[in-house]
Simulated assay, not measured.
Amino acid sequence: MAEPVAATVDRLRGRAGFLPVDAVAGLADDGVLVLDPFSTLVSPGVALAAGVTLWPGTILQATGDGRIAIGAETQLFPGTRIVAAGGRVSVGTMAEIGEEGGFTIKADQPGNLVEIGSGARLLGGGSLTLCNSIGDGAQVLGPIRMQNCRLQAGGSHREPDPDRRGGVLKGSGVARGLTVPTGMVIQAFGLFSEDDLRPQTFFHPKPRE
């Protein structure tokens, strides 16, 4: 007799290191909103705080000694993939990851650490690999491949004073080994460079009093 489809799906999920469908749906008991447990893949041991929203098509994969922790009220939009294969990924509270094209975050070597602060916003199909520190309120806007970068903390994109917002990368291309201070932004289409740092008021002038 053929194996029921649901049992087959759960068996294959388990072979790949993911929870069965019922266990993903059961995350609701801990206050996690899973909008489609059938398309959402979560590894055992991933730490999800109450109020996290997992949109359809999100993947949270932790293998070996890898660790993933997602803070309260954070939203992971469709196409978000977070992988910790020997490394560690931590996301603070009220972050927004993956809107407008998904986002990939990988800590796939021992010692890799990716830290994403509270109120950070990562969108537009970009990626973080190796070690990265995305401070509170910092933003990555666009398909930018980041390695070993640091965006300093500040207010979120809702902060009315651009000089107080977290660091921002916007555009498309590759960013390696960069530090973006609070209130600053690099816009590039190609290879990002600290030579292109500008104050965020260049793009968002302060209202005249």
Rank of each mutant, 00 (worst) to 15 (best):
G167M: 05
A188I: 01
V5Q: 14
P4M: 11
G167W: 04
A50F: 11
A28Q: 12
G31A: 10
A85F: 03
P20G: 13
I70L: 00
V46R: 09
R198T: 01
L60S: 08
P207C: 00
L76W: 02
W55I: 02
G64P: 09
R13S: 07
G66F: 05
R198L: 12
A175F: 00
K206I: 03
N148H: 06
A47F: 03
E99K: 14
L33D: 13
E194Q: 08
D65M: 04
T93N: 12
C131I: 09
P37T: 10
A153Y: 05
I105W: 01
G64E: 12
G124H: 13
T8E: 12
G154W: 00
V46K: 06
G142S: 08
A72T: 11
T40C: 14
P143I: 02
F103K: 06
L151T: 03
A175I: 01
S172F: 05
E194R: 04
V46P: 03
P207S: 06
G119F: 12
D195K: 14
A62T: 06
L60V: 14
Q152E: 14
V89S: 10
L12E: 10
A25G: 12
R198F: 02
F77G: 00
A28M: 04
T182G: 02
P56S: 08
A2C: 05
V185P: 01
R164M: 11
L141H: 10
Q147S: 14
V83R: 15
I144V: 13
E73F: 07
G190L: 00
D161S: 06
G167V: 09
A175C: 00
L19D: 05
Q152V: 03
G137F: 03
F77D: 04
G173Y: 02
G155V: 03
R198Q: 13
A85V: 03
G124M: 05
R164V: 06
R176P: 00
F77C: 03
G86D: 07
Q187L: 02
D161F: 06
E194T: 15
L128D: 07
S90Q: 15
V9A: 10
V5Y: 12
D30G: 14
I82E: 04
A23Q: 12
G17N: 07
G142C: 08
G51F: 05
P44M: 11
G117S: 10
I186D: 01
P20N: 08
R150K: 12
V32C: 05
G111Q: 08
L113W: 02
K170W: 06
A49T: 06
V5L: 15
A47R: 15
R67H: 14
P56I: 11
T129G: 12
A153D: 01
G79I: 02
V83F: 09
G87T: 10
L169E: 03
G57N: 12
